[in-house]
Design a binder for these strands. Structure first.
Length: 969
RNA sequence: GCCCGAGUGGCGGAACUGGUAUACGCGCACGACUUAAAAUCGUGUCUCGCAAGGGAUGUGGGUUCGAUUCCCACCUCGGGCACCA
């Protein structure tokens, strides 16, 4: 018997595949195409760790299956090689990034190839290759020519110690990633890309793509679309207006002050009006100098009133004070807000700190829809002003409650306000009438009310009560007897705060309980308006538009998304291909001069002034203007490393094209011809890229679509994500923790096929999984088992000698073998599981099949071959090796995916379970699809079932077709 | 603080649309083969109980004939966002 030797097998077939180009994707084919994509890696100096290949293998399995299903498959690979680690390495060692990159990509390529991933290596790309970044620069210039790439002063993160600008991702907890110094904000001219121009489409078009919901959600949150209103407040006795943005125009009548961002331009214009200018100026300066860390640590809101300035609320012409505060951001909305402390958490905190008034204008509403207190549909509502008294006994710390005798109704003391009566009087009167307590004092009027709609069971009418809430305390426990009328209705009970929680049965009970716990509660939800003139009693959500129009405001949409800071003062990135001419201003580098290649420099360190090291090469920087021939300088900023990855999937379709970034024909073939519903068929990547890379590349793609350079509105039709592989201990694999597992070792000891199977078996593909080297042996045993079955089948074949005519393989097993049935079920399961990326359960099913095949003493060769085929995407080397020993000429990896036989999958006899009161008591075999009544009869007469029924009466028998019978007694 | 995701044996995990909870794998125990070991194969392996039977899917409630699955509240862990009006 031949031993399984993964080393020779894997080497042999990998070189066969390379020689025969079996994974080569032709762009000219009549077959339907499938474009599968994984995120190309950044080739770090550490080489691959076992986490890297998880997505490669997952998509490889899908690609291999698609190939076997007859698709023309494009599954490419490349390197996203611009980036900081390489540059930092260059700074430290002086070795050229180009050379380091070459070395690293060689390692990554060798390692990836050793896993037998079916990439089409003829399409390999590298973002640092001038023939690639020529087109990155070219696309940038299209942005520039359309005015979407522009220079602007922008705040950047600045490390005062290293004297360099840092990208957001280089700032960790407000500190410089490299030296640990606190970063500060510094204004600098930066290149920007106007992604905000596409914000709405980036949000809306998520409806067109097949992404996981959570990916769509986090993109939507990141884009942060919100519909609201812009409303203008006049400044009293001054010819300026304050424009605020709000999503809650309905709360306009509750505005008690207005806040501007300290950076707001109006602040300077109002200088002459402000009586405390020196204080204001001082505050503006403190905010300006605040570092990110200080801002993050100190969440307490601060601000200064602009004394002498009053804003006029357009809704009621009331004058309200104007403040500046750093909780208002200059970049969002209009940089100014109307503060409604009663209905906004932040305004509330601020108002509490500075003692600003609170005015409630939205009152919650509760509608009883269940039980006998549910509102009756056909009755009109009788409106009542009412009170709800929260009475505490300070001696016992309990609350006065009433419990109705004829209804299941528990609540507080409530009652209607009589004509001309003061609500507090009402409350005192009701407390006395309902409970007899004589000496009660008001301790707090929270100026809070809520609406409750219910059916009044005593008065037999629909009530719409507006309950005003008051807090009382007993002065003493002196109590008169309650009238017979009242005591017939309800009794008096005292409850603790905790008891109240479950005691109240009225619809607003939970809310009341929360209110008692937090009398300063502010309500941020929707409800009915109050103190809002003609809008009183209207549903707040429905008045937003009306109120906006009422004050001459505008309905607008705002986004959280900000324009993309696109320049880095770094060496190792694509030079921005723009020339700064003294006469002509910013001039794009002419197409014929692209790419602007990175020159060689002596030092890779950024300059002291914060400029990129390129600024130090005067020979490169100083140039003649391509337009006027005059004196000019090159841009020395480079692009961020998101640039190259924003369009790489397009280049894969046509890697060698020198005239275009990719030909129209190839793009049409691989992305599809229709604007909607096309793109890369399946893109798998990490969750960490959902808001940056994924959004950025969608933005670039849409821009290119508008230029009619790509055929589809979206780059990716379907997106899935893989979970990380964590090191032992459940933490991220990292060099510093020493828990990095190198795939080379695993491949050497166990083989690529074992590694592949193990990584796919480790757990659900989308979830993080903990690497455990001890468990790999299971995958290896499975492969060896398959090998042994192969040896057995070969021997079987040999002993029979010749093939019997008419029966392929010639060794047809007895009809009673269970294998064909199991095989067909397994084919079905594996086919479906691969599509859903449930690789772990697919492998589990194949393990079961393998165990059965090994046990069986006569396995049909054709059955075994089918098994090999469905296993091939997971373990391509070993399956191909066995396949070829079975005298198959064509490679298994381009053979046909097996179909399953529907008839074989159906069981004729099936086990069903009999339950009595939901507990399993017996099992029985029945024929599939037998008549319901027959099964029920069988079940209730089963001996072990009878034992449990005893002499009890059978109330109900539930039969779930072909599954179970439940007898309820 | 807010938004997502997840809590199932000693461990990784399975369970389709509400229908036998713990498939498959690792580990462990015992047995077979072997001079022996490894490898392989077989049997067992949630828990209490001699058994009959009972109890377990983070906790507490609810809906249901029946809940890992649906609803409510809470706890723990992981990830993201962080004053976005």
């Amino acid at each position: 018997m031949k031993e399984y030797n993964h080393k020779t097998i894997e080497k042999k077939w990998q070189s066969e595949w390379e020689k025969n180009k079996i994974y080569f994707a032709s762009s000219k084919s009549k077959k339907s195409k499938f474009y599968g994509l994984i995120e190309f890696p950044y080739p770090s100096g550490d080489g691959l760790h076992v986490g890297h290949p998880r997505p490669y293998i997952g998509m490889d399995i899908i690609s291999r299956k698609k190939r076997m299903e007859g698709y023309n498959v494009l599954y490419p690979m490349g390197w996203d090689a611009f980036g900081l680690p390489t540059e930092n390495y260059a700074i430290k060692t002086g070795i050229q990034p180009k050379i380091v990159t070459k070395k690293n990509t060689d390692t990554f390529r060798r390692q990836t190839k050793s896993l037998g991933v079916s990439f089409d290596w003829s399409r390999e790309i590298n973002t640092t290759d001038p023939s690639y970044y020529k087109w990155t620069q070219w696309i940038f210039l299209q942005f520039f020519k359309k005015g979407l790439a522009y220079k602007a002063k922008s705040e950047i993160n600045w490390c005062p110690k290293d004297k360099i600008g840092l990208a957001n991702e280089e700032v960790v907890d407000g500190k410089c990633e490299r030296c640990g110094a606190e970063t500060i904000k510094k204004e600098k001219e930066q290149w920007m890309l106007a992604i905000t121009k596409y914000a709405d489409r980036l949000d809306k078009d998520l409806d067109l793509v097949d992404y996981p919901e959570r990916v769509k959600l986090s993109q939507r949150n990141w884009i942060g679309k919100s519909e609201g209103s812009e409303i203008e407040f006049k400044v009293k006795n001054f010819n300026e207006k304050i424009k605020v943005f709000t999503t809650r125009a309905d709360t306009l009548f509750g505005v008690t002050y207005v806040v501007l961002a300290p950076e707001h331009e109006l602040v300077q214009k109002l200088k002459s009006q402000i009586s405390n200018w020196s204080e204001v100026e001082k505050y503006i300066n403190t905010v300006k100098n605040k570092s990110d860390l200080e801002r993050a640590e100190n969440k307490e809101k601060t601000g200064v009133e602009l004394k002498g300035v009053l804003a006029i609320n357009p809704a009621n012409d009331e004058g309200v004070p104007v403040w500046i505060a750093d909780y208002v951001l200059p970049h969002y909305g209009t940089g100014a807000v109307m503060a409604v402390p009663a209905h906004d958490e932040r305004d509330f905190l601020f108002s509490k700190k500075y003692n600003l008034p609170i005015k409630r204008v939205v009152e919650p509403i509760f509608i009883q829809t269940e039980g006998d207190g549910a509102v009756r549909e056909n009755l009109p509502f009788i409106k009542r002003n009412a009170i709800c008294a929260i009475v505490r006994n300070p001696k016992t710390d309990k609350y006065l409650c009433t419990s109705w005798k004829n209804y299941h109704m528990h609540g507080l003391v409530t009652g209607g306000v009589e004509k001309g009566e003061d609500p507090i009087e009402t409350a005192l009167r009701e407390i006395y009438e309902e409970t007899g307590y004589k000496n009660v004092k008001l301790v707090k009027d929270p100026k809070f009310a809520l609406h409750s709609q219910f059916y009044h069971r005593v008065k037999k009418e629909n009530r719409w009560a507006r309950f005003q809430y008051f807090f009382f305390e007993l002065i003493d426990e002196e109590q008169d007897t309650i009238s017979d009328k009242e005591s017939a209705l309800h009794e008096v009970v005292w409850k603790t705060k905790d008891e109240i929680k479950t005691f109240f049965t009225v619809i607003e009970g939970q809310f009341t309980h929360n209110f008692i716990n937090n009398p300063n509660y502010i309500y941020t939800g929707d409800g009915l308006l109050h103190n809002s003139l003609k809008f009183d009693d209207l549903e707040s959500g429905e008045t937003r538009k009306e109120i906006t129009e009422f004050v001459g405001g505008k309905i607008v949409t705002k986004f959280k998304l900000r324009d993309w800071v696109f320049s880095r003062q770094r060496y190792w990135g694509e030079p921005i291909p723009v020339i700064n001419c003294e006469k002509c201003g910013l001039v794009p580098v002419p197409d014929k001069n692209l790419p602007v290649k990175l020159p060689e420099v002596k030092s890779y360190k950024p300059t002291d002034t914060g400029e990129s090291p390129l600024a130090g090469i005067s020979k490169w920087v100083n140039i003649k203007c391509p337009k006027c021939g005059g004196k000019a300088k090159r841009e020395t900023d480079t692009m961020p490393n998101w640039a190259g990855s924003s369009w790489y999937y397009l280049r894969y379709t046509d890697v060698k094209n020198k005239k275009e970034f990719a030909s129209k024909a190839n793009l049409k073939y691989w992305l599809g011809n229709k604007a909607q519903g096309g793109g890369v068929d399946w893109y798998n990547g990490g969750m960490e890229h959902t808001t940056l890379h994924l959004l950025y590349s969608r933005f670039w793609h849409k821009f290119l679509y508008d230029l009619k350079l790509v055929p589809t509105v979206e780059p990716y039709k379907k997106r899935t994500s893989h979970g990380m592989i964590l090191g032992e201990g459940g933490v991220k694999m990292s060099k510093s923790l020493g828990n990095v597992v190198n795939p080379d070792e695993i491949v050497k000891i166990y083989g690529a096929d074992t590694l592949r199977v193990y990584e796919m078996f480790i757990g659900p593909f989308e979830e993080a999984a903990v690497w455990n080297t001890d468990s790999i042996i299971g995958a290896r045993r499975f492969i060896e088992k398959v090998w042994r079955i192969g040896e057995k089948v070969l021997k079987q074949k040999n002993s029979f000698g010749v093939t019997l005519p008419g029966v392929l393989g010639g060794t047809h097993t007895a009809a009673n073998s269970s294998i064909p049935k199991l095989l067909n079920k397994t084919i079905k399961k594996v086919s479906e599981d691969i599509e859903a990326m449930r690789f772990n359960t697919a492998i589990s099913a194949m393990m079961i099949l393998a165990t059965e095949m090994e046990k069986s003493n006569n396995v049909d060769v054709n059955d075994f071959k089918k098994f090999l085929k469905i296993l091939a995407p997971f373990a391509p080397h070993v399956t191909q090796d066995i396949w070829s020993s079975l005298k198959e000429k064509k490679d298994i990896n381009i053979s046909e995916w097996p179909k399953y036989d529907e008839k074989l999958i159906k069981d004729e006899e099936i086990k069903i379970v009999v339950q009595v009161n939901g507990k399993v008591r017996a099992e029985m075999m029945i024929e599939v699809d037998v008549d319901d009544e027959k099964v029920k009869n069988l079940a209730k007469n089963d001996i072990s079932v009878l034992k449990f029924i005893g002499d009890k009466e059978i109330k109900k028998i539930i039969y779930v077709k072909n599954r179970l019978v439940n007898i309820v007694v």
